[in-house]
């Protein structure tokens, strides 16, 4: 109960925040020549969050845990553009905007789940009402 209280929602929130950052970089660089649009692979982040195959086994307490720069170990990958551009920029603003909106909604959903969990806990602590 204690360890599973927030399930994977905490990781999910981090993932959504990170993806928000990456997508915002894409939209910000919509007019930058040679900028390549990026996105995070959800599958790899999920695998990592669930302690996937790539995690490091610690044999001593002194060992550092595997720590990637984006903390989630999620892979940032280049997007394959649907239409070529003359300046080498692969940002498709509408695609990015759609992804950004979707990500924001997912972030809100995760927040709602967390909120529900916290409410449940408070309800239990107060003994109802």
């Amino acid at each position: 109960m204690k360890t599973n209280l927030f399930a994977n929602h905490e990781q999910a929130l981090k993932f959504r925040a990170l993806r928000n950052q990456v997508l915002s970089s894409n939209i910000a660089n919509a007019d930058t020549p040679n900028y390549k649009a990026r996105d995070i692979d959800f599958g790899s982040a999920l695998e990592k969050a669930q302690g996937g195959a790539l995690s490091i086994t610690k044999t001593s307490d002194l060992h550092q845990s595997s720590w990637n720069t984006n903390r989630l170990g999620a892979q940032v990958k280049y997007r394959v553009p649907m239409q070529p551009t003359l300046d080498g920029n692969t940002v498709e603003t509408d695609v990015e905007q759609a992804a950004f909106a979707e990500n924001a909604v997912q972030y809100r959903a995760t927040l709602a789940f967390l909120d529900g969990q916290i409410r449940t806990l408070r309800y239990a602590l107060k003994g109802g009402d």
Partner: peptide, 16 residues
């Protein structure tokens, strides 16, 4: 314009 900040190798994917 040019982008600056983290490279893809740094895995953060954030650039201004």
């Amino acid at each position: 314009f040019a982008s600056f900040g983290d490279t893809l190798a740094e895995q953060t994917g954030v650039s201004g």
